[in-house]
Structure formats: structure tokens, C-alpha cells
């Protein structure tokens, strides 16, 4: 098991290098080190000498990928790519264009993101599984038919509608919760209600439909028929056997997105004024702060890879028959 995790972790390294090359290219195609220097040094009366000094000071005087002047291995080591990317691997993201430390900001901002994303995920799962189970119970009846239609309709509504509509109704007409804002601690719960609710409602259509298919697939399996043939009550069949077995694909499907919860939701956060990583990213995009965008890309890639790894591990945990070789 441990050996497997180690191997997968090692396999992640070339992938991360690849991601790094992509972000690096995206970054430097647009922003030459000269541009960066000018950005830092301000816009007036900047001399070439100052720019050169700045680049040397920060290690941007080297070539991007290959240093023809150096010898042997050094021709790869003395490059911007080598020096800057190594720092990403230890999660040193450097400074944003506005001069703030990115790692510090990320560590501050991931908690609000989690405060929204985790309840949203859990409640969403609970509600969707319940619905799907109910629909599966009434399979091939008018309830099933209309439930699926409603799911498709819900899926077809833009998430923007849910947000704008939800804010309008709950915040403005009913005045039940604050329209936007955020606060940590117990007092902050009322700020979370609306975004979480909207997130749950927005995702319910597709996930219910998807879980229904999983349940139906499970119910058509031989063992379920056998159990049912024994005359065991339908709800026992559903809860004891179908639910338990169907949870395996559902949960392993969830595991892959777990780490990405840190990244937060772009739209929800900016609409509700939640100071999480999602709105951080949006702000960076709008202010064209490439340093932050690059860091978030790298972070997202790392979390995704962790997610894949967790998925594999969770397979062995829920199903002892699966061996990781």
C-alpha cells in the first residue's frame, strides 16, 4: 500500500513538471522579464540599468529554458525555468504583482472557501442520494418519469439564474438572510446559508439523475434479484443492499473532487463577497495578475493529482477485492 502511494507520488512529479511548463509558457509568452521589471519599478523614468539590476537580483537575467553559456548540467540549471519552478514545488509562490505574498494570502483565504464548499458538498450528497433512492424505488412509474424530466429541467437552468434569483428572493424580498458578506465563527453561519443553499439547488438536477442511474444499474444485478426473490421487503433491499453497494461508485466519484474544494467557487464567492480562493482567483483574473493565476493553476493541479490518488486508495478501502499492484 505504502509502496503504491510512493510510486503514485513519484509519478505525479513528471505531471507537475508538465503543468509547470504549461503555466510557465503561458506566463512568459505574455510577460517578458522586462515587462515584470517595469511593472515592479513603476512606470516613470526607468533606466535600462535598473531593469538589468532588478532582473539579476531576482534571477530573471538567465535564459528561459536553456543556457548556452553554461556547461554540462548547468546549462539547464542556470535558467529561469529551473530556478523559479523549483520554488513552486515547495509551494513558494512568490509575490503577486501588487506585492503581496501569495502563499500567505492563499493560507488565509482557503478557510472561507471550505466553509462554503464542504457543507455544500455534504448537504448536496445527502439530498441527491435521498432523491435518487426515492426515484429508484418508484422506477418505471409516472413519479420516475416526471422526476427525471424535472432533473433535466433543473440541469438546463444556468447557475447564474440560481444565484441572481436566490439573492433577489431570499435577501431582498424575504429579508431572511444577509444579502452578502462573510464572517468567521458561529456568527458567520447566517452568511453561509444562502450560498450553500443555492449551490445545493443548482447541483441537484444532474447529481440526482446520475445517482438514479447508478441505483438502477445496481438493482438490475443478479444478487439483488436473488435477495428480492427470497421475499425480503423492498425497503430492506434498497437500504441494505442497493444503497450500500451503490455508495461505492458515488463516494469514489466524490473523493476526486475533495481536494479541489479548497479552490472554492469562482462565481458564488464573488457574488456573495466571500473572501475565499475563488474570489481571489477572479480578482486576479480581472486585475490580470498573472503571478496569482499561475500559482492557482499549480495549486489546482497538485490538488487534482492528490484527488486521483485518493480515489485509487478509496477503491481499496471500500472494496477489498481491488488490489493495487
Amino acid at each position: 500500500m505504502i509502496a503504491y502511494i510512493v510510486r503514485r507520488a513519484l509519478y505525479a512529479i513528471p505531471i507537475l513538471i508538465g503543468v509547470n511548463i504549461i503555466t510557465f509558457l503561458l506566463f512568459f509568452v505574455v510577460n517578458t522579464p522586462d515587462d515584470m521589471a517595469r511593472m515592479f519599478l513603476g512606470q516613470k523614468h526607468v533606466t535600462e540599468v535598473q531593469i538589468e539590476d532588478w532582473k539579476t537580483e531576482r534571477g530573471y537575467h538567465n535564459p528561459l529554458f536553456y543556457n548556452a553559456d553554461a556547461e554540462g548540467l548547468d546549462s539547464f540549471k542556470e535558467t529561469i525555468f529551473y530556478t523559479k519552478s523549483l520554488r513552486l514545488f515547495v509551494f513558494d509562490f512568490g509575490r503577486s504583482d501588487s506585492g503581496r505574498d501569495i502563499s500567505f494570502d492563499i493560507s488565509q483565504r482557503m478557510w472561507p472557501s471550505l466553509a462554503i464548499a464542504v457543507p455544500q458538498l455534504l448537504i448536496g450528497l445527502l439530498v441527491a442520494i435521498t432523491f435518487a433512492l426515492l426515484i429508484a424505488f418508484f422506477r418505471a412509474t409516472y413519479i420516475d418519469y416526471w422526476a427525471v424530466v424535472i432533473c433535466v429541467v433543473l440541469m438546463s437552468i444556468s447557475s447564474l439564474f440560481y444565484i441572481i434569483g436566490g439573492q433577489f428572493v431570499m435577501g431582498k424580498l424575504l429579508r431572511v438572510v444577509p444579502i452578502s458578506g462573510f464572517e468567521s465563527g458561529i456568527f458567520g453561519i447566517k452568511f453561509l446559508i444562502l450560498p450553500v443553499l443555492i449551490g445545493v439547488v443548482g447541483g441537484i438536477g444532474s447529481s440526482t439523475r446520475w445517482y438514479r442511474t447508478i441505483f438502477l444499474e445496481e438493482m438490475n444485478k443478479d444478487y439483488v434479484r436473488t435477495v428480492r426473490a427470497k421475499g425480503i421487503a423492498e425497503q430492506t433491499v434498497l437500504f441494505r443492499h442497493v444503497l450500500r453497494n451503490a455508495l461505492i461508485p458515488i463516494l469514489t466519484g466524490v473523493v476526486v473532487i475533495l481536494p479541489l474544494l479548497f479552490m472554492g467557487s469562482l462565481i458564488t464567492e464573488s457574488f456573495f463577497g466571500i473572501p475565499g480562493l475563488g474570489s481571489y482567483t477572479i480578482d486576479a483574473i480581472n486585475r490580470q495578475d498573472f503571478a496569482i493565476v499561475r500559482s492557482m493553476v499549480f495549486l489546482g493541479a497538485v490538488l487534482y493529482i492528490i484527488g486521483l490518488l485518493l480515489t485509487d486508495i478509496s477503491y481499496t478501502v471500500v472494496d477489498p477485492r481491488v488490489r493495487l499492484g
Binding site: L26, L266, I285, Q288, F290, R294, M296, G300
Partner: peptide, 14 residues
């Protein structure tokens, strides 16, 4: 592995 939205954002900025 690259988050889609961010890749799009970076590319559109570019």
C-alpha cells in the same frame, strides 16, 4: 490537471 477555468483565464489574458 490544470483547472479548466484557470487555463481559459490565462489563455484569454494571453
Amino acid at each position: 490537471s490544470v483547472p479548466g477555468v484557470l487555463l481559459i483565464a490565462a489563455a484569454v489574458l494571453m
